[in-house]
Computed example of a mutant assay.
Amino acid sequence: MMKLLRVSALMLLLPFGFVGSVLAQQPAYPIVIDHALGRTVIDRKPERVATVAWANHEVPLALGIVPVGMAAANFGDDDGDGVLPWVAEALDALGGEPPVLFDEGDGIDFEAVAATDPDVILAAYSGISQSDYEILSQIAPVVAYPKAPWSTEWREMIRLNSVALGMGSEGDALIAGIEADIAKAVAAHPDLAGKTAMFVTHVDPLDLSRISFYTDNDTRVQFFKDLGLTSPRAVVETSKSGVFSGSVSAERVDMFEDVDIVVTYGDEGTIERLSANALLSTLPAIRNKAIVALGRDPLGTAANPTPLGIPWVLDDYLALLSDAAGKAE
């Protein structure tokens, strides 16, 4: 059972005595934010905040603001209510009117977003298209990703979204608080220091002829660095091209001989299939079952770090990685 960490938004993560000082630092308007899809101008402090895509709502929640609308969770939502457990805790702690949940199974629900009458729309971590951005911009100012779809590192997501809220200083303090949580947790697992980890994308049990993996440009692999892990040579080389994933024939499995830990989505059956494969089992990490298999549950979302999700699942994720490291040669 994962330990429930009570999230009391801003007050939980800001240093004592900081709240009063940052509240006195009122930002100058208009706020101008340049991003990959254009330039957003925010003329006044937003009061009604809507968010789209994955986890952007966690920034206002962590800063004490309940969004008027946000995307329903579509991964890791084990109870089917569209809200991940750490988000539910933040909403309970803050109280107030619950946000409208946008169903994004078929893309952005523009009508639902418009119906919430937002002053700003946060999408710093998202995959919205130029067309999506232009339509959303007719509703309210939109903050998109700084470089490429689904590539915004968690710190940058907090920075962009918090600045859009007129709370840039509070956002910096939120980042510092999370970094302190990570540092404390990682210190308890010195066995991970210097270990190499590779994140294998979803394993197809019917076709193990290829090895597909995320590169250093993906947020899941970027999180490895926060946890003291490094990438193997093949992942580093593939990352230089700017792509977010790579794929090679299983016959080239020797490319990954320096991998200490394999992380993927799956279960014990996935581990057994990988270990039984004639080619893949030649890798020390797989032969020794130094594998972390993440399910479609809240813990599985630990792979993709988010402001409220990190402290909630950090200890459990590190424990799994540490267990795998203990099996590595």
Rank of each mutant, 00 (worst) to 15 (best):
M1L: 12
L4F: 13
M11L: 15
L12D: 15
P15F: 08
F18V: 09
G20A: 13
V22L: 09
Q25I: 06
P30W: 09
I31S: 00
I33H: 03
D34Y: 03
L37H: 00
V41A: 01
V41N: 01
D43R: 15
K45W: 04
K45E: 14
K45V: 13
E47H: 10
A50C: 09
A50K: 05
T51E: 02
T51C: 11
A55D: 08
N56Q: 13
N56G: 08
N56K: 07
V59L: 03
V59E: 01
P60G: 02
G64Y: 12
G64P: 12
I65G: 07
P67R: 05
V68C: 09
A71V: 01
A71W: 02
A72V: 02
A73T: 08
F75N: 10
F75Q: 11
G76Y: 08
D78K: 11
G80L: 10
D81T: 06
W86N: 02
E89Q: 15
D92A: 15
A93M: 13
L94S: 06
P98L: 10
P98S: 08
P98F: 10
L101P: 06
F102M: 07
I108Q: 02
A115G: 05
A115K: 06
I121K: 01
I121S: 00
A124Y: 01
S131T: 13
D132S: 06
E134F: 02
S137T: 12
Q138C: 13
V143C: 08
P146N: 04
K147W: 14
A148E: 14
P149A: 09
T152M: 05
E153F: 08
E156W: 02
V163L: 13
V163P: 00
V163M: 13
V163I: 13
G168Q: 05
S169Y: 12
D172H: 04
D172E: 12
D172Q: 10
A176R: 12
G177R: 01
I178K: 00
A180C: 05
A180I: 04
I182C: 07
I182S: 07
A183E: 10
A183T: 09
A187L: 08
A193L: 11
G194T: 03
T196P: 03
T196L: 06
A197M: 03
M198T: 05
D204R: 06
D204H: 07
P205R: 10
D207I: 08
D207H: 10
S209M: 12
T219I: 14
R220I: 07
V221T: 09
F223D: 03
F224H: 05
F224S: 04
K225Q: 14
S231R: 09
S231E: 14
S241M: 11
V243Y: 11
S245D: 10
E251Y: 04
E251Q: 08
V253Q: 06
D260W: 13
D260Q: 11
I261G: 03
Y265F: 14
D267E: 04
E268H: 10
T270I: 04
L274H: 00
S281R: 12
L283Y: 09
A285D: 08
I291N: 05
V292P: 00
A293Y: 06
L294P: 00
L299K: 02
A302P: 13
W312G: 04
W312M: 09
Y317I: 06
A325W: 08
G326F: 11
K327E: 03
